[in-house]
Every structure is written in structure tokens, then in C-alpha cells.
Design a binder for these strands. Structure first.
Lengths: 366, 366
DNA sequence: CTGTTAGCGCCTTCAA
DNA sequence: TTGAAGGCGCTAACAG
């Protein structure tokens, strides 16, 4: 009795005719709205039965038009992501997509407009045309966009934006993780610790770097941030690694440990350091942050910190959906705790801590 | 004169009222349909002007309901992607999203249902509810799903599926690239070449492996595929690397070169090999495939092959959009050529090619 | 408990 | 060259 080809999808009208009821009844039964309770169990069953047999699926456009809701959220990405960063975010996308699916929501990818148009805010089509009920903002985003979002009354949640508690955010505890990394290295006996990272303009970078500097000063140590000048920041990881290692090696006193802004930087420098003859962790200890998959493959594997990506996705999704359901309610932002992944790139500094002069330690090609 | 808050979005009716014309006229002008030519330039200008001033944007749901088209395509991903693989695909997503945006199309992420439900085909909601005009299938996909897609008359294009010319595909030239890799290693003098890869069930793996075996046999050499037994395939890359290197080292004759199914495997084994004392490329030459970003960071950096991801995305999108526009038309599949990225992991074999006995060469911990 | 009615915003005849 | 009318599929309000 079922048509082989769904050339014309079945509608509620069809079901109504077959069940001998009105379309309104069908609608009440099949939409999960609370008004459905006024229907007799018998009718409900019959309609559901027929719907199943006929392979009925609601027309999302019609539903959205009528309900003024889309059961879809947007994921807003800056366009500028390179392959490295995007690999971190693809994991996030996976988790978000999974969480949203569980909640019956779709995920629409929205890439930011190209940078040429900066200044005036250009909304991606799906925001303009209101095809989403809310937006997840991954990475940081301009104030202008936020105010447009607000004026359009589109709920949003920021993810990994380090934008502060002014907004609804799900963020890693950037400050905390950096302090923890420093305590760890300091506890091992390191004093000449430098900080290396590339994403100079990411709020997370700034927070971690600040935590690093505060820690160093509090312990009477001189902070040293490698490649902190913006001119050097462009280009690819290979080039970045070269420059960073060169800068490190040209210091009068070599560091005994490096705290990296993230694993990407750590992996980038890892081989360049080894090539210069640094034995890890004998000559230098390394700590990363984020636990990207390749970190575990290094030999020795990278000691790093991990944030609960899965949980952050879950939280962000539920915050957004709550916000959509009740636009007036205010929810607290969330800052996620890190977990230390202790592997093989850290050890005590090679030289004794006792007050010996910090002589050059004979690094080849240094 | 413009409302500060768009609490009620402007509709064509509003515009019609303001311009003193009917909604039909507004629709004709603003929809890019060919019927718009019947309107006088003057009226057109006036309407467009007002629309711009009022910040009118069409309601996508209403438009979709009426036109039965959504200006949106789905991207179908298997759920099982781990972080490694997803990093490769996130690049693809970026390119696809960009291409689609240029064409005014949205991108909806559709994750496959969990594997538990295998057997019966479960369509993701957005396919069922027809919220997309077509689908891009990344990675390979079950025959069942394809037949459902066909019966629903939803156009699709397969990307990286190695599904053969039976379907509309955009694929890398798996066979060609593997032969090229072999020719290269063979040309350097290598004879004991083994093949390493993890994705035993991916059609691309099978094709490349087959090309490897054919090449070896044609040259009178014994093929050797490492970790070809499926029991060992589960687990993470670290474990895989351990097992693979162990298997390689336990051979009576060590290989002088490894051809990897992909860069992921190559990167995974790289450090494990180095740890065993292999000097690359002195003791062993390595060739990868795909050119993932971390390949360039290894020291020496990995020699590999690259496929034009950007172009593949462009092609796939244009094929799909053409198919959507004209469902009856048949387009040819596309197989993309590789480009060799020669870096530092290949050299001639260490031992002379002359008929000396293949003695164990003194690898530590071997 | 169920049916009738009236749109959501847009587009497409068909008529003027 | 333009307008009036109807309907895409669904749902909410109001009657029975």
C-alpha cells in the first residue's frame, strides 16, 4: 500500500483523509506541542500508526513559517582559520553537531564574510534571513556583530571566546591553566621559563600570557615572551618554528623550560628544537595546552593540559537552547577546568639549582 | 525613518504598501526569477530602493515552502570520525562552505546516525524533512542510503568516496598516486618497500594497497602490507604506531622504504621509528599521502603527495548545483591528479643494491 | 474531544 | 505593465 516513490511527499492533509479526521487533529497529534493531550488515545494511536506506515515526515519549511522557529542553530566561524586551527575546531563541530542532533536541532555552518568587508557588519545569509533560532559563536567576534545579533534578538552563546563574563560564554579557564603550568614547571625546579605562542590577538593568548607574566614576576623571575612582535606572526608554522627557535637560541641564557600557549605551537617547535640538538626533556622541558592528537605521538610525547571539549559543547548547546526557549532568562557563563596530561616532555632542569653562574651549556649549533 | 529594532521583520506586504504597488509586483522584482523582466525600470528601482532602505530580507522558510527549494545543501559525515581524520575533513568543510556561500547556498551539517542502528537506514532529520536541495557525501556511504536518496530524488555528489564511476564522484586518483609513489621509491633504488595504513575498510585504502601490490609483483618483488589483520586496527594511533613498528622490526629483512596509505599513518610511525633508532632517510625512506600540515613540521619533513582540496571542493559543489538545477542531466565523475611534495624523508637505500646478502643492519632495540 | 477557520510570507497563474 | 487571488503545509485560536 505504500508508494514506491515518494514523488509527492505525504502531508498532514493526506493523513487526515486516511484517518477520517481533520488536519488540525493530525497536527495536534504529530506536533509535540502540549495541546496534543486533548486527543483520545485511540485517535492518537491511529494517526501515529498511519503516519508511520506512510512514512510521513513534516515539512520543515511550513512548520518554521508557521511556528516562527527553525529548530536550527548556526555555527559562526571566522573565515581566517588555517588548517591547524580548524583541526581543533572540527572536533568541536563534531561534538556540537552531536549534541544538537540529540536535541532535534540542525546545525548550519556560517562562515564569516571575508575580511575585506570589515568595518560594516555583513551578516551571513542565514542570519539575515532568520533561518536559525540562535547562534553559536566559535572564536572571538566583533562587537558590531554582537550588537546586530542583539538588535535582531537572536540568542547567542560564545564558545572559546574568552570574552569575559559580560557575555554568555563557555570558556576554558585560561588564567588557571597557565598558572598551573607554571606551578608545575616551577615545582620541577625551572626558573628560566619562556612563553611561546602565535595567536597574538586571540583573547586566550593574552590571558595566558598575562598569567605567565604575573607568575614570573611574583616569583622574582624575568618573564620572556618569544616572538611577541607582531611582524613575525604572519606566515606558516614552519617559518614560525624557525624564527622562534632562533630567537630562543640567541638568548644569552637559554631557557630550561618552555610553556606554550597551545599544543600547536609546541608541536611546531618540537622538531625544530630537536634539530638544534636539544634533548627533550633533558635539555629543555616543554608544556603545551589543548592536547591535540599529534601531541601523544611525539617521542617523548608532550605533557599538556586538556579541556573537556565534549562537556563544553554540551554546556554551550544547552545554554543556547535555554536562551532560545526563554529569551528573558539570564544564565551564568561557564569556565571549564583543565586536566593535566602528564607525559614525557618535562623533567627537572639539567643544571643544578644552586647558585652557579648560568653559563652557556654547549648546545650544538646554538 | 527606519525602525531601530527589527522586532517584526519587514515583509513584501510592507514594501508593497510603501511603494503603492501589489505584493505580486514586489515579488517579481525582488525574486531573481526571469518573470521580473515584465516590470518597468521605474517601478523596479523604486521597489529595490525601498527594500534596501528598510533592510528587507526575504523569509527563507516562506520562500522554500512556496518554491520547494531550500538554497541549502547538506554535508553528510559518518559519525565515526576521530580527531585525526576530522582534521583532514575540516579543511574540506572550509572549502565547501566557501564555495557554497559564493553560490548563495547554505551548508547544513548532517551527521550519520550512530552505528548501533545499522541495518535499517536512518536518515538524518534534514534529509527526511527535505530541508536541503542536495547532499554532499564525504567519505563512503552505504548502498542503502544511496538508494533512499535516489528514491527521494535528492541529488548527491560523493566526495573522496572512491566509489567508482557508477556514481557521481569527485575523487583523488588513488591508483595513480600509489603507482607514482612506488615509481619514485623504486627509482631511488628501493626494493624492500612495505605498505602501511590503518583505514582497512576505506575504499581508497584498498585501491592504494592494490596498486602497491600490483607494482611490487610487476617488478618481481614481494609485497608486504603491515598490520593487515583487522584485529589490530582498533585503538588509537599511538598503539597502532607501536604495533606497526614492532611488526616491521620483527621481519627477517628490514624494509628500506615505507609507502604510507596517508600522512596520518606516516606521522604516527615517524617518531616510533626514530625511537627505534631508524635514521630517516638514511636507514629508511618514508612517503606519505595527503600533505597534512604536521608533515611539514617533522624533521626531516615528510615527502608526500597532495591533492587539490580546493579544486575538489569547487568541482563537487558545481556538480551538485548543476545536478539540482537539472536532475536529468548526467555529469562525468572527476578524478583529481596528485602533486608530489618532495621534502626530506626519501633517499637511496643505505646498503648497496648489488647482490650482497641482506643481513640485519644493526638497528638498536630491533 | 474534535473540527473549522484563518493565516504565516512568498510566488505563480490568470485576468485586467 | 500591474493586480487579485489562491495556495504551498502547517498550526493556533476558537467553535462546536
Amino acid at each position: 500500500m505504500r508508494s514506491e516513490r515518494h514523488r509527492d511527499p505525504i502531508t498532514q492533509k493526506d493523513l487526515a483523509r486516511m484517518a477520517g479526521v481533520s488536519t488540525a487533529t493530525v497536527s495536534k497529534v504529530l506536533s509535540d506541542s502540549p495541546s496534543g493531550i486533548e486527543i483520545s488515545e485511540q485517535t492518537k494511536d491511529k494517526i501515529r500508526q498511519i503516519a508511520r506506515e506512510m512514512g510521513y515526515t513534516p515539512n520543515a519549511s511550513a512548520r518554521a513559517l508557521r511556528r516562527r522557529s527553525y529548530e536550527t542553530v548556526g555555527l559562526y566561524f571566522p573565515r581566517s582559520y588555517g588548517p591547524w586551527v580548524s583541526s581543533v575546531y572540527s572536533e568541536l563541530t563534531r561534538h556540537l553537531s552531536y549534541e544538537l542532533e540529540k536535541a532535534g536541532q540542525g546545525l548550519l555552518i556560517m562562515m564569516a564574510p571575508p575580511v575585506e568587508t570589515e568595518g560594516k557588519v555583513i551578516l551571513p545569509r542565514f542570519l539575515e534571513q532568520r533561518e536559525v533560532d540562535g547562534v553559536l559563536l566559535a572564536h572571538h567576534v566583533s562587537e558590531d556583530l554582537l550588537s546586530v545579533l542583539a538588535s535582531l534578538r537572536i540568542p547567542y552563546v560564545m564558545l572559546n571566546c574568552a570574552a569575559g563574563f559580560k557575555y554568555l560564554c563557555v570558556d576554558p579557564d585560561d588564567f588557571g591553566v597557565q598558572i598551573r603550568a607554571m606551578e608545575y614547571l616551577y615545582g620541577l625546579g625551572h626558573r628560566r621559563i619562556c612563553f611561546v605562542g602565535r595567536s597574538l590577538y586571540h583573547p586566550s593568548y593574552r590571558i595566558r600570557r598575562e598569567a605567565y607574566e604575573i607568575f614570573m614576576r611574583q616569583h622574582g623571575l624575568q618573564p620572556y615572551v618569544v616572538l611577541s612582535k607582531k611582524e613575525i606572526q604572519s606566515g606558516f608554522s614552519e617559518k614560525f618554528a624557525e624564527l622562534a627557535v632562533e630567537e630562543i637560541c640567541s638568548q644569552p641564557e637559554l631557557p630550561t623550560a618552555i610553556s606554550f600557549y597551545n599544543d600547536i605551537s609546541a608541536v611546531a617547535l618540537y622538531h625544530a628544537l630537536a634539530e638544534r640538538g636539544f634533548q627533550i626533556p633533558r635539555d629543555i622541558s616543554l608544556v603545551g595546552c589543548d592536547d591535540i592528537p599529534e601531541s601523544a605521538l611525539l617521542r617523548p610525547p608532550l605533557t599538556t593540559f586538556r579541556f573537556p571539549a565534549q562537556r563544553m559543547a554540551t554546556e554551550a548547546v544547552s545554554m543556547l537552547l535555554n536562551q532560545i526557549r526563554d529569551p528573558k532568562a539570564r544564565f551564568p557563563s561557564i569556565r571549564c577546568e583543565h586536566e593535566q596530561i602528564e607525559r614525557g616532555t618535562c623533567g627537572p632542569p639539567r643544571e643544578p639549582l644552586s647558585g652557579l653562574p648560568d653559563l652557556f651549556n654547549g648546545i650544538p649549533n646554538g
